[in-house]
Computed example of a mutant assay.
Amino acid sequence: MAIRQRLAQPGTSGRVQARRPVRCVRLNVSAGGKVYIDPVKNECAAFAPATVANLGPGFDWMGCAVQGGGDTVVAKVIPGKPGVVEIAAIEGDGGRLSLDPAKNCIGVAATETLKLVGAVSCGVSLTLNKGLPLGSGMGSSAASAAAAAWAVNGLFGAPVPKDKLILAGLASEAAVSGYHADNVGPSLLGGFVLIRSCKPGEPVELLQLPFPNPERLHFVLVNPKFEAPTAQMRAVLPKETPMKSMINNCCQGGALVAGILTGDVKLVGESLDRDVIIEPVRAPLIPGMMAVKEAAKAAGAYGCTISGAGPTAVAIVDDPAVGARVAEAMSAAFRNAGKLDVNTAQVVKLDPEGAKFV
């Protein structure tokens, strides 16, 4: 059964449906009578996994978390500076990301998380370790935001449930890549997440979709040395689409969900392979992508498409040995047809947990 969660935006009506474990929150009453929330620890580290968004026909409404790479954020208390957010250091980005918290997704996510926690008595200092390449199509910014939100939340005993923290992640994503939850949702929650509603100023509604027998599902992820910024890849999307194409993608999107809920690996692979709206306009911008897609299927994959906005390609298999063969074929196609070197080629499983303390 799908788990339904409806998240209320600040200032709107709505409800949050979630099971909340007992947590300890330390309160501090100042001389003027104002109640502040004190941290319960001085330092907290969190990891958030990579994600595969869109999954072919599920553009902007489907994503999943995968094991393997991800980003780590360490949050430390700054005494005497209520609500202040600072970024102390960033590692693994080649010096490309800003240390200005208002211009970096971890700073935005941390700021919004503090608002969700309440009137806190301290500030936070953040250190980000980038485990995911920028512009990779594996939810790089979302992993950073999810790790930051979970780490800051952890300083105060994790009083805010993960599903509500998606609002902090959305604010962060909106600042860097657009207002969409198909990366930050699964990076926080884990597993497959369907975004039923996600519009600024309105409640966000998510459906967590269980996948039976997840040990049978394997993702082949091949990331070439090529950057595909989300903003540029969104700029090529069609403003209108033919009715025939819309019907096809609705059909394949429904089949994708059916495959997930029934644990049908083949149906998941075949469905994500049949997008006729987004992939046809994005694939030509990624050198060799169509050759990679064909090579994956020829080597035994059930289907292959672009992960997120690309350039990473994702294929679906039910056997890790087949996955290794598919990874080799996809890598060769990127090198031969796309003239691109390959950063990583890996066979990974679904990540059911999402963000976690480390």
Rank of each mutant, 00 (worst) to 15 (best):
E173K: 05
F226S: 03
K164L: 15
Y179K: 04
S141K: 05
K115T: 01
Y179C: 02
R234N: 13
R196N: 14
S197I: 01
L217P: 13
L167K: 00
A143N: 06
V184C: 04
G157Q: 06
F156R: 02
Y179Q: 00
L134S: 12
G131N: 03
P161W: 00
K225H: 13
G157S: 10
L207M: 14
V160F: 09
V176R: 02
R216E: 14
R234W: 07
S144A: 15
E205L: 03
C198Q: 07
K239M: 05
Q208I: 01
V120Q: 07
V117E: 09
R234E: 08
G157C: 07
G201T: 06
L134Y: 04
D163Q: 10
A143Q: 09
A151T: 05
E240D: 14
P200N: 04
L221V: 09
L132P: 11
V120W: 07
G191Q: 10
P203T: 01
E215P: 03
A149R: 06
L217N: 13
P161E: 08
G123F: 01
S197H: 15
S172N: 05
N213C: 05
G118M: 07
Y179R: 01
A168N: 09
H180E: 06
V184P: 12
A175F: 02
E112H: 11
V220H: 10
V176G: 09
A151M: 05
P212N: 05
K130P: 04
A158Q: 14
G131A: 04
N129V: 07
Q208A: 11
S197K: 15
V236K: 04
G135I: 02
L155C: 08
A148D: 08
V193K: 15
N223Q: 13
L134G: 03
M233T: 06
P212Q: 07
N183F: 09
A110V: 03
L221T: 12
K130I: 02
L114K: 11
K239F: 00
L114C: 07
P203W: 10
G123H: 00
I166K: 02
S197N: 13
P238K: 12
H218T: 00
K130W: 09
L126I: 02
S172D: 07
P200C: 03
D163R: 09
L114M: 15
G190D: 14
P212D: 04
L221A: 06
V222P: 01
E173Q: 04
H218E: 01
S140G: 13
V184F: 00
G178W: 07
I195R: 00
N223Y: 02
V222S: 09
H180K: 07
K239G: 15
K115N: 05
G131V: 10
P242G: 05
K162A: 15
A147I: 03
E202R: 13
L206A: 09
E112D: 08
M138N: 02
T230A: 00
